[in-house]
Amino acid sequence: MTLETLTFAATASSPRVRSDAEAGLLELAGESYPENSFEFFQPILAWVEDFLARDDRPLGVELRLTYLNTSSIKCMMDLLDAMEEAHLSGRAVSVTWFYDPENDRALDLAEEFREDLSLPFRIVPMPSEG
């Protein structure tokens, strides 16, 4: 059985999501303050857990999140904790977090995630959308 591909379009309060099991890539981009974050993130977390359970291919996660509410932060931490566990057992996993360099808070948020993890975690400025 092949892994389901996630493709969610962005809304005002939820990010665009795209998963590619072939490439071992998960991308999230946009705002994240859905009405029910746990419900929104559940299939994304399930996809990551399934991907990590299946074989031993690398997983890269690319995040371009402009805003996260606290329940989205909690869901993202759960997702990163699952990746951290895989990393500690020798799996190749990595995170690239793109942030708006004009917003100090965006960098603080990324760094607060990274300081709790030992997996490869790059924090990269993205050009502002104006």
Partner: peptide
Amino acid sequence: YKERLHAEVPPGALGAGLGLIR
């Protein structure tokens, strides 16, 4: 904040109990 961030959220909760702390 960090303690709550890594804790289990009770089933049925609509939030992570982090809002006021943030």
